[in-house]
Simulated assay, not measured.
Amino acid sequence: MDDYIEAYLATPIHLTDLASLANMSGFHFHRMFRLVRGCPPHSWVTTRRVCRARELLCSVST
């Protein structure tokens, strides 16, 4: 799951895409993701995008 998210950060990532990777319904995936990670999938993806942007900005400015 993390590899998929990292590979597709620059594109829209839909809940249904992540749920199908886990062979779950969107509802069940959302519940389980939030239970395991402590935040909803959208927040997780957004945080990863911000971290990636920060990494790219730091690598360009040095």
Rank of each mutant, 00 (worst) to 15 (best):
A7R: 06
P41Q: 04
H30R: 14
D3H: 10
F33Q: 02
H28R: 09
Y8C: 06
R34K: 14
T11K: 07
G26I: 00
I5M: 06
L15P: 08
I13L: 07
H30M: 02
A53F: 11
G26M: 00
W44R: 04
F29Q: 03
L21R: 12
L15E: 09
D17A: 13
P12L: 03
G38A: 00
L18E: 07
R49H: 09
V45W: 05
L56S: 10
P12D: 04
R54N: 14
F33T: 01
L57E: 13
Y4N: 04
T16R: 13
A22V: 12
E55T: 14
M1C: 06
L56Q: 08
V60N: 05
H42S: 13
L9S: 08
S61N: 13
A22D: 00
N23R: 07
P41R: 08
M24D: 05
L57S: 14
A19D: 01
M1E: 14
V45C: 07
S61K: 09
N23L: 01
M32W: 12
D2N: 12
V36G: 07
S25P: 09
G38K: 10
A19F: 03
H30S: 09
F29C: 05
S59T: 13
R52P: 10
C58F: 15
P41Y: 01
A7Q: 00
M24T: 05
P40K: 10
M24K: 10
T62M: 14
G26C: 07
Y8S: 07
S59D: 14
F27I: 11
S20H: 01
L15H: 06
F27V: 04
L56A: 15
T16W: 03
S25C: 03
A7V: 00
A53E: 14
V60S: 09
T11N: 14
M1Q: 07
S59K: 12
E6A: 10
P12G: 12
C39N: 00
D17M: 04
H30I: 02
R54S: 15
D3M: 01
N23Q: 08
P12C: 05
I5F: 03
D2E: 10
M24L: 15
M24V: 03
R49M: 00
T62Q: 14
I5T: 05
H30W: 01
S61W: 13
E6F: 00
H30V: 03
L9C: 01
I13N: 01
E55K: 15
M24H: 00
R49P: 11
A19P: 09
S59W: 04
Y4C: 02
H42V: 13
R37D: 15
V60K: 00
L35M: 02
L15G: 11
F27Y: 01
V45L: 07
T46M: 09
I5E: 00
T11E: 13
E55R: 15
C58K: 14
T46E: 07
H14W: 14
A53C: 13
R31N: 13
L9P: 04
G38L: 01
P40L: 02
V45M: 01
D2K: 07
W44V: 08
L35W: 08
M32K: 05
